[in-house]
Design a protein around this nucleic acid. Sequence first.
DNA 1: TTAAGTTAGTGTAAAATTAACACGAACAAA
DNA 2: TTTGTTCGTGTTAATTTTACACTAACTTAA
Lengths: 233, 233
Amino acid sequence: MSFTYKYPRPALAVDCVIFGFDHTQETPELQTLCIERNIAPFKGKWALPGGFVQMDETLDAAAARELKEETGIENVYIEQLYTFGAPDRDPRGRTVSVAYVALVNLEKHHLDAGTDAKSAAWFPINKLPALAFDHKLVVKTAIERLRGKVRYQPVGFELLPDEFTLSELQMLYETILERTFDKRNFRKKIDGYGLLIETGGMRRGKPNRAAKLYRFDSKRYKALEKHGFLFEL
Amino acid sequence: MSFTYKYPRPALAVDCVIFGFDHTQETPELQTLCIERNIAPFKGKWALPGGFVQMDETLDAAAARELKEETGIENVYIEQLYTFGAPDRDPRGRTVSVAYVALVNLEKHHLDAGTDAKSAAWFPINKLPALAFDHKLVVKTAIERLRGKVRYQPVGFELLPDEFTLSELQMLYETILERTFDKRNFRKKIDGYGLLIETGGMRRGKPNRAAKLYRFDSKRYKALEKHGFLFEL
DNA sequence: TTAAGTTAGTGTAAAATTAACACGAACAAA
DNA sequence: TTTGTTCGTGTTAATTTTACACTAACTTAA
């Protein structure tokens, strides 16, 4: 590598805001996974999982790697959010962080005691503890992005199990957007997109009428997307 | 600075996609400002203006600084776009680039022969030359972002002069979104937001009826924005 | 086995928004 | 003063969105 540029360089990190949703809860909340730091700076404080980018990996790969290393979570939806670069955001020295957002279903990805995850915990986004670095700002930015995105792209399904009921889907949107939807109008609209497939299964186990299960037709969505299809809630 | 992290670090750069619009043209096009590189790599090729982030400046500041240094443009709308980090995107060695988008009005910011700008030129986005690095991808990403953003946030005004006519505004949206609008419906909608102020001036000089001039009421927009106001085109 | 409690699933009508559409007014140039 | 061009303006039909309530299905407890 013959690189003429020799000036001091900022360290480059990635951090992940992991949104988790538990469709089995009666009044679910969006949650975020935090890690308790066991080294300085901010030792003992909660922080987002993250770490430094290695020289031979893409940013996406770095984010996925850190996610897996620190939480055991892998093969989930993840996308770049924003890059934070205030000169004083890390007391150790200049560090620029590329933040990512991941979406997981809490039932599928419960924290196993393995990995480093013994110091990891989910917090409802309205009850976050004090966070290290500028991670409060990162989470705030992530929430705004999720709220914006969920309305015109069908990413919400990433927060549900593969098979879900329409009530669960509605609850998800109500939780993220902090508003309510009329049940019949919601179903009419979702139905109109033709992006859900009945699996034939039913959600049983509660003392009331069982609900049909659906899955998201991602193939159909990708096909429609190419021809300028607009999802909108 | 006592920084324990000593691993090799990627170089960190910023690059700017500058969108320019010329409302005086009969059939205006969105344009992007490119710089002809006079050093290797990609010597003689066109590239986006940009450069390395210094250790004591924010990313936003770095982008604004490079914009000014390389094009003479300053005090314009600029926002972070996306961070590009493919390991091989720079043949000199690992370089991660935080891309920015700037919006300018071409009449206001014509390229003065001063600065480094003798090798700078505007290209319609549909007639871009071959670009260095991954800058083609950067521009593509920027266009997608602009098209998305312009529909639900009033950023388009940044591309017009302070005072503009409704026809110019309509032409701007038609150019960016590559579609047409019905004149009366367009005006009705814009009018409905109450975000334009008649300046009293008229756009004259063409051999036809003069048009009223307006300016964007950014104070009012900011006030409304706080209360969850939605602009949508 | 029956009653009580809870969520699932469904249609219609009113209101609001969006889309389609045409012509006289104003100005400069010939 | 005629011609050419853009400015500025309302109404109607179509579509989309909103509001709203009851029966079906299932479990649990009496």
